[in-house]
Design a protein around this nucleic acid. Structure first.
Lengths: 127, 127
DNA sequence: GCACCATGGTATCCAATGGTAACCATGGGC
DNA sequence: GCCCATGGTTACCATTGGATACCATGGTGC
């Protein structure tokens, strides 16, 4: 048997700006993590509670990926059960306008659903 | 044998605006598809060429998902090899500001890399 | 000293997603 | 009759993500 064929996995010059910024956000929950870090720095357990459906495994992986991409910085704290704080870097903050734009669309969608639901149910909720 | 245990897969009210808009964009290449549809309607083969690294399988799946989410509309054409055109719906257009914000970040990143590369290479590119 | 707790993870296992490549259906050109 | 282009679909496999259990550290109650 010869050598196994190496599938090149080449990533030829994309240079598509959308592809570049999406590469920063790749991975499950990445935008949510950035969203919840956009205020103050937060700790691992806080982020777990912020994003209830994330698993510790994925949160851990995502934080290390975001750190390696330069979007997030990690600061271990010398507390009794050793803990750590995560914060957005300046590069991470550059993504906030885009994430805010996404959130605005989401708010609009939620508002539309709510108004239609209240119409459909004859305004069970006061409004 | 009894019924297979149904893992509830519950999606309890997230109501996080970011989660809502990301649900619209879920799936590989979804933002790119919207990006390339943001001008004129485009055909399947055109999108394949626009996004060279997408596979036909995923493009097909993504278009049908985006259609079912109401972001994209499909218009079959009565041509000799039957073809189809895809266009953004109004809901799809509401995502364009967010996608443009992402693209702006990507452009900035590319510009920074370029300028650093040209400095590192002693400005091979005139600038 | 020792059990027990909280924090911040890892290890293991399985399901869903995406990629590759091959194939199919239609109708026109040669 | 055969091949081609378009617009997909199918089969198969690698990677990613999720659920859950577990581990390491050090503090606290006793």
């Amino acid at each position: 048997m010869g050598l196994p064929v190496r599938k090149s996995k080449l990533a030829p010059p994309p240079a598509c700006p959308l592809t570049e910024s999406l590469a920063l956000l790749r991975g499950a929950w990445a935008p949510n993590v950035i969203w919840y870090l956009s205020g103050e720095p937060r700790r691992f357990g806080e982020l777990r509670r912020d994003i209830p459906r994330i698993s510790a495994r994925v949160l851990s992986a995502r934080l290390r990926e975001l750190e390696s991409r330069g979007l997030v910085s990690r600061h271990p704290l010398d507390t009794s059960p050793p803990s750590a704080e995560y914060a957005l870097t300046e590069l991470g903050r550059e993504l906030l306008p885009a994430i805010n734009a996404l959130a605005r669309v989401g708010q609009k969608l939620i508002a539309e659903w709510d108004s239609r639901a209240s119409v459909g149910k004859m305004a069970r909720v006061v409004g």
